[in-house]
């Protein structure tokens, strides 16, 4: 009995040490955000900053709160729109036994494989032609397109868990497919839908390159602001640190609250908790 307790304590210490390794770099940036630029680079290091020094945050936010707001709007909208498109499709691919559905699923996934770097210019040309540039709407559309393949795959894998008998029974009772989708499939796959939503949210939240080309002043998103702090004559480290901290809040919160869903999201739904 004692030996096993001892073993557990050792393992717990080890686990804490591992956790520290994965935490430390971010922690150091977090501490940096409460320091003046001199203190950020001081040697020997200022180990514990004065947490009442919030100048970096006030300066940074006064320059960027509209961008932050844009990021939130784009991210939330593209998450919703992605789900609106993807869930029915995933449902269809799972329950409609038509020929070529596997091929269709593979094709949908393959649209995600073009590197975003390569997609940027063609998309710019397309949106210029459609006269949709310079709007949050354009970003929502592009992010949705980038997200659909992933969202379809993950939600389909969750729909597959629904017993087919349940669907059959409702069909016999005369329920329409829409009814089954809304009243049976969606409620039964809440966990899966949450997974999809988190990942789509994070992707849109993190995206930089497309946003850089597609936005003008009012529609700029927060990552563009962060990247702008790195100019040639200087890197504005105070802003970088504060903005990195703010940018990391949503991913961290989502990880904390929904960590159970992460593994299934990362494996396109193949692995479930």
């Amino acid at each position: 009995m004692k030996a096993s307790v001892k073993k557990k304590v050792i393992l717990l210490v080890l686990a804490s040490f591992i956790t520290l390794i994965f935490l430390a770099p971010n922690l150091w940036m977090l501490f940096g955000s409460f320091k003046s630029q001199n203190a950020m680079f001081a040697l020997p290091p200022v180990w514990i900053p004065d947490f009442t020094y919030i100048k970096n945050f006030t300066i940074m936010l006064s320059q960027s709160y509209t961008y932050l707001l844009n990021s939130i709007i784009v991210t939330v909208c593209s998450t919703i729109v992605s789900l609106v498109f993807s869930l029915p499709t995933a449902f269809g691919l799972t329950f409609f036994k038509f020929k070529g559905r596997f091929f269709l699923a593979d094709w949908i996934l393959s649209t995600r494989m073009l590197p975003p770097v390569a997609a940027a210019v063609p998309l710019f040309i397309l949106f210029k032609y459609l006269n949709l540039l310079d709007s949050l709407f354009a970003l929502v559309i592009v992010y949705t397109a980038f997200n659909i393949p992933f969202a379809v795959w993950v939600s389909a894998s969750f729909f597959k868990k629904i017993p087919y008998d349940l669907i059959e029974a409702s069909r016999i009772e005369g329920a329409s497919w829409f009814h089954i989708f809304l009243k049976i499939a969606v409620p039964l796959s809440k966990g899966g839908i949450a997974t999809v939503a988190i990942f789509v949210f994070i992707f849109s939240w993190n995206e930089l390159l497309i946003a850089l080309f597609f936005t003008v002043s009012e529609s700029r998103t927060f990552p563009i602001f962060i990247s702008a702090q790195v100019s040639q004559a200087q890197i504005i480290w105070g802003n970088v640190a504060a903005a990195t901290v703010i940018q990391s809040i949503p991913p961290i919160l989502l990880t904390i609250f929904l960590q159970k869903n992460i593994v299934s999201g990362l494996t396109l739904g193949a692995v479930k908790n």
Binding site: F22, P25, M29, I226, P251, I252
Partner: peptide
């Protein structure tokens, strides 16, 4: 064990972070 869940959650945070920010954090360090 208590806490192990909390430790695990903290450990997996890097996955979700913005790649741009990860780069900047390491440039700083």
């Amino acid at each position: 064990v208590k806490f192990s869940n909390a430790l695990r959650t903290v450990t997996i945070m890097p996955i979700m972070l913005t790649p741009l920010c990860v780069g900047l954090v390491f440039l700083y360090i």
